[in-house]
Nucleic acid binder design. Structure first.
Length: 118
DNA sequence: GACATGACCGATG
DNA sequence: CCATCGGCCATGT
């Protein structure tokens, strides 16, 4: 978490982290929570996403579970929409899972990446 | 206050 | 691979 966001309310920091995931990449709920300064609070990320107003235009589809799968029930409407959006921006899905190379890990973050993969 | 329910997660068997 | 459990904790009944 950087200094600029350190004082912000947790919810806002989480929204900011979600917004910072570049297209073509995905990130887990847990990693977003950790990056926002709330390790172990993945469920809160889900809540924030669920309640975030659409006007914010958050890239909700880039947030997936730690096992690489979308969090919605398979074959549900939301699941399909997420799947569609991901494919649409170049994220692969093999057996319903996003491959490792398109998942941003918490470790990577502060140091290197946070730019579209290669 | 108890109890259940989440867009979750990691460890363990 | 699957199931269970303990962590996490806001919300609703």
């Amino acid at each position: 978490m950087d200094k600029a966001s350190a004082g912000q309310p947790l919810i806002l920091r989480i929204q900011a982290e979600i917004a910072s995931v570049p297209q073509g990449q995905t990130c887990s709920y847990g990693a977003i929570a950790t990056r926002a300064g709330a390790p172990g609070r993945a469920r809160l990320v889900g809540k924030v996403l669920r309640e975030a107003p659409a006007e914010l235009g958050l890239p909700w589809h880039r947030i997936i579970r730690a096992d690489g799968r979308p969090a919605f029930p398979p074959e549900s409407e939301a699941w399909r929409e997420q799947y569609r959006r991901l494919l649409n921006e170049g994220v692969e899905l093999r057996q319903g899972k996003v491959p490792e190379h398109q998942r941003a890990r918490t470790e990577d973050i502060d140091a290197l990446l946070w730019r579209p993969s290669y």
